[in-house]
Design a protein around this nucleic acid. Structure first.
Lengths: 381, 381
DNA sequence: CTGAAAGCGCTTACAG
DNA sequence: CTGAAAGCGCTTACAG
């Protein structure tokens, strides 16, 4: 306790490894050896050093270490956010990234500004961070090419833009890795679970209209994927495109929606728990009973669990996504130069709650009005 | 363009101020003088140096600067978040802090982990940041006392816990500054606007029940404050305490709520736009027309604007809060040792949208059923 | 196993 | 106005 600043007295100089060495009666390098464990140190000396560190309340200075090692032990998260961003969609990513980064002993600098275009350059050129996690990449995002030119590695989270067929970045540099949740597979999974329990229709409600602003890349192909899988399984499909992703949007396409599910065993699927809940309320207002007359499944983050406890959903696995992303990034920082990786995180299964009956036992009405359950083996008719 | 890493070739060493000095034909210190502007430099030399910096694509190394100056130009934001945190409540604070920090040329390390208890110690002891913004401080939060002992300054955002009457921190150290939105004044403001247009009842719906977990400090006194102001103005008041802050909670206290507003000119006020929207929907489901039969005003973040476009609300001014917080923190980092500051950010006025008629012209029914407008001067009767 | 020395890339008195 | 030198606090070959 000799090291606590008292009142307004001038703060005592922080102890350095030199002070520790002096107190322990060893060389400064020995202190470093003890701390980093890169060189063998006798147990006696190790104890002396540890003891001195404790007594002085010594903690190594991060910037001195960084200056010497060229490792900041900091990664930067670039995620453009505005006041319209749905928070419970971003929080699991944010917190997951921070948690996994900490597990790799990194701190996370977060930059959410949409007008801070040179954050990427500034943070890497001044050696403020060891690597980047870049989120919400859009089509033609200049940051992808920029990231490829950087002296530090980057991983793209949430989209596979600029990869696949057109994975070549103009100019030199190495491609950033990319991790994303596979919405295509997710929609296909919903189609499969629908077919498994004898539904005959998959109604997909799009999250956002195609209004000139470019659709999120993850939305470009998921409806096609859902339709393809559904048709392969013999289901009818419908795509409803509301003018907005909220309650008003659902109301605006109410007639289409009503027609799409009328007299059908339908599963209504959409991206986003907000939209899912809006559809649920729309149904209830019209005495269509989710989980009985129709199934509603939203593809959304686990956070939905708290906010919409009644909604059945297919989790987007943000933790799996960011865990893979941080592992990749940490490996790159440690010098892994293997070819760039594009990793799809696959969906698991629907979490059945109030808006679907468990698919395995979903009651099914025959034409005669009988209700019976069906197994996954497809014991039907 | 000579400095771009090509393909897998070994990355070129980053240029240093020494390289710049050599190219410009001056001493390294002169380069520093040009960059920092602390010493006079002739215009000719300045140009030479600037030119050399440009040609080499030179950017000063942050850790070397930090090692020398003991300034990291980084602040740490500590905000415990879990998956139940409402995102649109935290995003404006997060983004606001980052934006204002950048304006002061700070980057922001964010730590949202609820189990990373020594983040405060680690980040300050290893000199990773110059100061802290600590959010969501709760009663008896050990971080307040901890912050007071730190070598770097801290500012508490959102609560004034441990301040006021019991502002003394045990042990030595300097008290952190604190900035908070004044919910007491907010509820009083709602009471005043209600009285101004001839309402006779203020119904407050509490956001969270007092369920053993300590209430957020900002909720401790706001209902008292609302009641006091309302009664001073001759309004009746009611406090409704739902079992949860969501839709189910409102349903559970539906009878109380119905009784509280029956036959009254009531303003229903609550903290949180979610709750406000739940009340709005509850009203509409019972053919009580918000904005006509009753007023609903939620105290909430500006983000409500996007999410609940119909809801009238009293903005919580997150930007004003964090702007003040960062200004204070930056001043402390720059050596300001004046006494600790507790700054309340006062509410402005209600933003009238769908759930209130503009208060100035709210139609008012007399006993005889007449409808008439009223001015702020209180022309009544 | 241990220690003396160099050096990471800056900034800052200080001397000129 | 300009430059040579010291030093911030570490880590890492290297010599012993």
């Amino acid at each position: 306790m000799t090291n606590v600043t008292i009142g307004t007295g001038s703060p005592r100089r922080r102890p350095t490894s030199k002070d520790v060495a002096a107190l322990a009666g060893v060389a400064q390098s020995t202190v470093s050896h003890v701390i980093n464990g890169n060189y063998p140190v006798s147990e006696t000396v190790r104890r002396q050093v540890l003891d001195a560190m404790e007594r002085l309340d010594y903690h190594p200075n991060a910037s001195a270490r960084t200056l010497r090692t060229s490792r900041t032990r900091t990664i930067a998260l670039l995620e453009k956010l505005d006041e319209h961003t749905a928070g419970y969609d971003v929080l699991p990513y944010l917190t997951g990234i921070i948690r996994h980064a900490r597990e790799h002993d990194y701190d996370v600098i977060v930059n959410t500004l949409s007008d801070d275009d040179n954050a990427l350059d500034r943070l890497s050129q001044r050696m403020i961070c060891d690597g980047f996690v870049i989120m919400d990449v859009v089509e033609g995002d200049p940051r992808v090419e920029r990231a490829a030119q950087l002296a530090v590695p980057a991983v793209l989270v949430g989209n596979a833009v600029g990869f696949g067929d057109d994975a070549n970045v103009p100019g030199a540099g190495r491609m950033p890795d990319c991790v994303y949740y596979d919405y295509d597979a997710a929609m296909a999974e919903i189609a499969r679970e629908a077919a498994d329990c004898g539904c005959d229709t998959l109604v997909m409600v799009r999250d956002e209209p195609d209004d000139g602003r470019s659709l999120p890349p993850i939305e470009r192909t998921m409806y096609d994927s859902g339709r393809r899988e559904a048709e392969r399984l013999g289901l009818r499909t419908e795509l409803i495109v509301p003018p907005t992703g909220e309650e008003d949007g659902v109301a605006a396409v109410g007639d289409d929606l009503a027609a799409a599910i009328a007299g059908r065993r339908a599963v209504i699927a959409m991206r986003g728990v907000n939209l899912g809940d809006a559809v649920r309320r729309w149904c209830e207002a019209r005495d269509i009973r989710p989980g009985i007359d129709v199934s509603i499944v939203a593809i959304g983050p686990v956070a939905a669990q708290g906010r919409y406890p009644e909604l059945s959903y297919l989790p987007t696995r943000p933790d799996a996504v960011v865990s893979a992303a941080i592992d990749l990034l940490a490996a790159r920082i440690d010098g892994d130069t293997s070819p760039a990786v594009v990793r799809a995180i696959l969906p698991e299964h629907i979490v059945h709650r109030g808006t679907t009956l468990p698919m395995m036992t979903l009651p099914m009405r025959t034409d005669s009005g009988d209700v019976w359950g069906c197994g996954r083996d497809g014991e039907r008719g």
